[in-house]
Amino acid sequence: MAKVIGEGNYNNALEYNSNIKEVNELIISINKLAEKLNKQELLRKRLTTDISHELRTPITSMQGHLDAMIDGVWEITPQRLISIKEEVVRLGSLVGSLRNLAKFDNETSESNRKNTNLGELIQNIIYNYEAKALDKNISIDYELNNIYMNIDKNQFSQVIINLLSNAIKYTNKGGKIYIKLTLLK
């Protein structure tokens, strides 16, 4: 069984009963080890898939944005360049987070909270996804107020990106997406 586990096959369990107590305890320990290694392998595979998706998203956004400017579809403006820079910074942060994977094993992660203008942050994200929306002839209308909150910019951005990406993915061609940011009292 140790040889099987050593070859990376963690799904098997050792089925053997012995009259010797220590051998039975060893069998239980080996089966628990195989089970834990199997869970770690599944977690590693899921993490690899998630990381790939998280890295691909800002790269695709920047590429679409730059292609639209190079092709003359969009005018090169400071706002559009800032939104691309935000994606580069976010991508750098994601890559930096890969170095801290050990922290996730302990289910703890640091939060970098800063006072942030949510309206500006969301607008930059919208700019980065306009090309993706235009591919499906989807318009993105928005009404964003300047609301400041103490947030982790990267974590908040990821939430908005996931929402907007899914909205584009599941909105029919020629459809509309409306985003409104307002402070509820």
Rank of each mutant, 00 (worst) to 15 (best):
V23N: 13
T171D: 10
I138Q: 08
E35P: 00
F156S: 02
I5M: 08
I20A: 10
E143N: 15
I140Q: 01
M69I: 11
S61G: 10
S93G: 15
V89Q: 11
I140S: 04
I51K: 02
R56C: 04
D71S: 07
E86D: 15
L118E: 05
I76N: 00
R56Y: 06
P58W: 03
K136T: 06
Q40K: 09
K180P: 03
V159E: 10
N145S: 13
G64L: 09
E107N: 14
E120C: 01
I27Y: 07
S157M: 07
E15N: 14
N106H: 04
N19Q: 13
G174F: 09
Q123F: 07
E130Y: 01
K180I: 13
N112M: 13
L118R: 03
K180Y: 07
I70Y: 10
Y129K: 11
A13N: 08
K153W: 02
L47N: 08
L42Q: 11
Q123P: 01
T116K: 02
G6C: 03
Y170M: 11
L26D: 06
Q158C: 03
E54V: 04
N124K: 14
S165T: 09
T182E: 04
R99D: 10
V73R: 09
E22I: 15
G119R: 04
P78T: 09
K132R: 14
I147Y: 06
E75K: 09
Q79W: 00
E110M: 13
N115H: 10
L163I: 09
K32R: 15
D71L: 01
D71N: 08
N150W: 03
L43Q: 05
K180S: 13
E22G: 08
I27Q: 05
Y127Q: 04
N31E: 12
A68C: 10
G6V: 02
G64C: 11
Y170N: 15
K185L: 13
E75W: 01
L184V: 15
G175F: 09
I179H: 05
S83Q: 02
I30M: 03
Y148P: 01
I179C: 08
L42S: 14
L134V: 12
N17T: 09
K176N: 15
W74Y: 10
L98I: 12
S111P: 07
E143D: 15
Q40V: 10
N19P: 00
N31I: 06
D141P: 00
Y148Q: 12
K85Y: 11
D141I: 07
Q123M: 07
Y148C: 08
I126P: 02
N137I: 02
Q158H: 06
S97D: 14
N150V: 02
E143Y: 07
E41W: 00
N11L: 08
T57I: 14
V159I: 13
S52T: 14
E54A: 12
K136G: 00
M62T: 04
L101Q: 12
